[in-house]
């Protein structure tokens, strides 16, 4: 597979997943406000903090309110991680590999893009709740269409790596920010307010019901961190994402787990095995925030290693000298 093509499929999936996660952040916050009678003040700034682009936001919009944050994260076409920009980038990547992906995938990205574009152009009638659930559904539809219509070949695996790395990154960020910014002033610990916050966090990653269904049903910060970082089976937990990204990588290179032949296999394999053996007690002891920061750095590093190992177009200067020189002097005379 062409390096450029693999790169485009990887980013196509990352951008779609990114758009979905941004919709999740905003959506859950909007829902939380509905419970504001219980004393939650509107918390919009943390949403920007998650993205790591707080300075950029402050410079352009100043105060974080529902309007400015939604504008910035949804429709700001100058901000490269807004939903609109993500879809534009996803579509450009899809367009450059249309012949590789299935027509159904292209049509889904295309109509996804136009759905967001239409909402952008008709902001007067903007219905946030409807819009953000449509974004989530469109992303799921894309993932489903991808799995059901594209051959599960190398390109598909690169797409999966992109999607899972992006999702692992976003789950880590959501957990990090909620834990440190929203929570808890000491007096709120264990209160109704505290519980609502945690439920909101779980909902933002579609984890609420699944969390309740596992062995430990009670909502505790400990249990939630354990679930979202280390659960083996929940598809948005960091460990799940990393395990499946690694599997796809091995499918691509044909190496078996436990070995490595390039930096990507090494860093991803290392991250996976760390997640396999670390316990939530270890994590809390080292500090959740510190642990998550470290994790984000490692995920970022894996992305870089994948770029270096598969996508980077290294210049090749060697020109062959063995091609016989062209002889046509007789003919050239005629001109």
């Amino acid at each position: 597979m062409l390096s450029r093509v693999a790169d485009a499929i990887y980013w196509l999936n990352r951008y779609v997943e990114r758009a979905e996660n941004i919709a999740r952040f905003i959506d859950v916050n909007l829902k939380l406000i509905l419970d504001s009678s219980t004393g939650i003040t509107q918390q919009w700034e943390p949403l920007i903090t998650i993205t790591g682009d707080l300075p950029k936001f402050k410079e352009k919009y100043g105060k974080a309110t529902a309007e400015t944050v939604i504008q910035f994260l949804t429709f700001d076409s100058e901000y490269p991680n807004s939903i609109l920009s993500c879809l534009r980038a996803a579509r450009e990547n899809a367009r450059s590999v249309r012949e590789i992906i299935s027509s159904e995938m292209w049509e889904q990205v295309n109509s996804f893009y136009f759905m967001v574009q239409d909402a952008y152009q008709q902001q007067k009638t903007f219905d946030p709740e409807k819009f953000f659930s449509e974004v989530k559904m469109a992303s799921h539809l894309f993932a489903g269409v991808t799995d059901a219509t594209m051959t599960h070949n190398e390109g598909w695996h690169f797409g999966r790596i992109g999607r899972f790395l992006e999702r692992a990154d976003k789950t880590a960020r959501i957990l990090d920010v909620k834990y440190f910014v929203l929570l808890p002033s000491v007096k709120d610990v264990g209160s109704t307010l505290d519980e609502l916050q945690w439920i909101a966090l779980l909902r933002s990653v579609s984890a609420y019901e699944m969390y309740r269904k596992r062995g430990q049903h009670r909502i505790t910060p400990f249990g939630i961190a354990d679930f979202l970082i280390l659960d083996r089976e929940f598809p948005r937990s960091i460990r799940f994402c990393i395990i499946h990204a690694e599997r796809s990588l091995y499918e691509i290179t044909g190496i078996s787990s436990g070995n490595w032949t390039n930096p990507a296999e090494r860093s991803l394999g290392r991250l996976r095995s760390e997640l396999d053996y670390v316990t939530i007690e270890d994590i809390i002891q080292s500090g959740l925030h510190e642990y998550l920061s470290h994790l984000l750095q490692q995920i970022y590093g894996v992305g870089n290693d994948i770029f270096e190992s598969f996508f980077a177009l290294k210049p090749i200067n060697e020109r062959s000298s063995e091609i016989p020189k062209f002889r046509s002097t007789e003919l050239q005379q005629q001109f």
Binding site: L2, L313, S320, E322, I323
Partner: peptide
């Protein structure tokens, strides 16, 4: 162009 042939860069 490498080794006298046209080649494409793949993964």
């Amino acid at each position: 162009v490498a080794d006298g042939y046209l080649q494409m860069r793949t993964t």
